[in-house]
Simulated scan of single mutants.
Amino acid sequence: MKMTVLCLLNTFLMATGQMLFKFGSSGKEITSILDIIKLFFSPVVFIALCLYAATTGLWLYILSRTPMSHAYPIQALAFPIVLLASMVFFRETISPMKWIGVFIIVFGVFVATRG
Results as ranks from 00 to 15, higher is better:
90 F>I: 05
115 G>H: 08
4 T>V: 15
104 I>V: 13
21 F>L: 11
111 V>L: 12
90 F>G: 05
112 A>D: 05
22 K>F: 05
13 L>K: 02
61 Y>W: 12
105 I>M: 02
13 L>C: 13
114 R>G: 01
42 S>Y: 08
106 V>D: 07
40 F>C: 15
75 Q>P: 00
38 K>R: 13
58 L>S: 04
97 M>Y: 13
8 L>Q: 03
37 I>H: 04
73 P>T: 09
107 F>P: 00
3 M>F: 13
101 G>H: 07
69 S>T: 14
90 F>V: 06
107 F>Q: 03
101 G>Y: 09
58 L>D: 04
107 F>M: 10
68 M>V: 15
34 L>T: 11
82 V>T: 13
31 T>P: 01
29 E>G: 06
44 V>P: 05
24 G>Q: 12
8 L>Y: 05
16 T>I: 11
115 G>Q: 09
26 S>R: 11
38 K>D: 10
47 I>G: 01
98 K>C: 02
62 I>Y: 03
68 M>Q: 14
20 L>E: 04
28 K>L: 15
59 W>K: 00
113 T>S: 12
111 V>Q: 07
50 C>W: 02
103 F>A: 15
66 T>V: 15
69 S>W: 09
72 Y>D: 08
24 G>A: 10
106 V>Q: 00
69 S>R: 08
97 M>R: 07
97 M>C: 03
85 A>D: 05
64 S>T: 12
46 F>E: 04
9 L>G: 07
50 C>R: 03
73 P>S: 09
110 F>Y: 13
87 M>W: 14
91 R>D: 06
108 G>Y: 06
24 G>N: 11
81 I>T: 09
105 I>N: 01
91 R>Q: 14
31 T>S: 15
49 L>K: 01
62 I>P: 03
60 L>E: 01
17 G>F: 09
104 I>M: 10
32 S>H: 10
41 F>D: 06
11 T>F: 04
58 L>T: 03
69 S>G: 10
66 T>W: 09
9 L>N: 00
103 F>I: 12
54 A>H: 00
28 K>N: 12
82 V>N: 05
3 M>R: 10
22 K>R: 15
107 F>C: 10
46 F>H: 05
23 F>Y: 15
27 G>K: 03
